[in-house]
Amino acid sequence: MGQNTAFANGSARKTKVAYLLQRIGANWQLYAMLLIPLAITFIYKYIPMYGIQIAFRDYTASRGMFGSTWVGFDWFERFFTAPNFWRMIRNTVLLSFYSLLWGFPIPIILALMINQLRFKRFQRTVQTILYAPHFISIMVVCGMIRIFLSPSGGLINLISNSNTDYLSLASAFRTIYIASGIWQDAGWGIIVYMATLANIDVSQYEAAKIDGASLFQRILHIDIPELIPTIILMLIMSAGSLMNVGFEKVWLLQTNLNKATSDVISVYVYQQGIENAKYSYSTAVGLFNTVVNIILLIIVNRLASRMSDKVRFA
């Protein structure tokens, strides 16, 4: 920057342009490396973004994404007046809210406990085993859930000595979804907290111990303050996706009988779009979801930056 301010007249600008061209030329191989990733991103990310306009059009294959009839907000109105609109909003928000409520604190607690294990080989073994479910496909996990919840001889019914068909109970769906989610990902979730806790200087523990602090006090006064920035960051990231219930698991666990609680927007987008080929309508529903998500993300970010200021001064 500094060297450029010295030039002011036209010939200097020419030198500047020449200099820029020269730098571009010297780096042409770097641009060449970027070429394929840029092309892929442009074609499969940016053109679809432009294609969102089919949410405001009546898409027909013959007239294409950018030439079909403009219908404005018709599809959105149809969605807002759909018989299950409020049910879907409610289910989507509640499912992710309860997932966050139960699923968020557990990895933190696990990390605090495991970090204090003194026998390092035992600690490694515990961590290894807790990661395991994360490496299993959601399809397989849902297969296991179905087997365990089977009314005739499923593990849960054997233990409780009953024969309830849990997957046809709307009241059980959220518990199934959240508990299995915790089983699968709580262990994986500890990694980021363990990485933060690994930064704590061991001498801090030594000093606290000499002062007579118990294990619980050491966790409370050394570990938790160290974790708070990470916790806030993770909370922002999860809270921003409150309307983002993943499609896969809900779809695999949905039955006709539990729809009262398992009917969520992402599944609806899939069913309307891919199964029923209502491209415009499905895009409109998806766009509505995305917009709500972005608004949530902005609100949460604002709140969080205010909150973290307070935490810093507290």
Partner: peptide, 29 residues
Amino acid sequence: DLPGRKFFSIFFIITMYFGGGLIPTYLIV
């Protein structure tokens, strides 16, 4: 100082937060 580095970075990062969604992507594919 690769000319355009910032632009390219942002070009990629935007796609983390915003996308075309299921159907527009499907239609392009």
